[in-house]
């Protein structure tokens, strides 16, 4: 869980390019409770993923992560399973917004190919640094706009709206 943390570490799961919403949240389980949907997350690419993911693990991917549908369950199931952050070369635009809205960090790093399965990856989103200390690897990530980072750290858009609306009512 990254809420409120400035920097954090996690174990790397490696995926390639074009990890789409349909493999993250398969359509045929979309009517089921989100916990059941989560158990099928990424099974088409790695059947062991949902069962073996440890809270705080990181997804490291290539281009266009989350491309496809607007279904925000694609980000929600990752959050629910305990994914600490998704670090990819690029993101689908809707997925990127959904992730921050739900309090999941989506970080753009063009050098994710340097990271290997099981690496312990250290992430400092504000500094724009991603490192693998055990292998002396230091990578740069694109800066996340302050308001998005703040929203994710507050727990997402709904938590932020809650604060805003209660402020309106009090004033």
């Amino acid at each position: 869980m990254t809420n409120g943390q400035k920097t954090f570490s996690g174990r790397a799961w490696i995926f390639g390019d074009g990890v789409n919403t349909d493999v993250l949240a398969p359509g045929r389980y979309m009517a089921a409770p989100v916990e059941e949907l989560a158990s099928h997350c990424l099974e088409a690419l790695d059947p062991s993923f949902a069962a073996n993911l440890q809270p705080g693990d990181l997804i490291i991917a290539g281009e266009d992560f989350g491309v496809g549908s607007s279904r925000e369950q694609a980000a929600e199931v990752l959050k629910l399973l305990g994914v600490g952050a998704v670090i990819a070369k690029s993101f689908g635009g809707i997925f990127f917004r959904n992730a921050y809205n739900l309090g999941l960090l989506a970080i753009v790093c063009k050098q994710t190919s340097e990271i290997k399965t099981g690496d312990k990856v250290h992430v400092a989103p504000e500094a724009g640094e991603i490192s693998v200390p055990d292998r002396n690897i230091l990578l740069t990530s694109e800066p996340v706009p302050d308001f998005l980072l703040e929203m994710a750290n507050q727990g997402g858009l709904v938590a932020q709206l809650e604060t805003r609306l209660s402020g309106n009512r009090e004033s």
Binding site: S70, E72, R97, N98, N101, L102, L157, L161, L165
Partner: peptide, 13 residues
Amino acid sequence: GIGATDMAGVLVT
């Protein structure tokens, strides 16, 4: 296109 939480924000504000 936007996701459901974004849409909830639109519907409220």
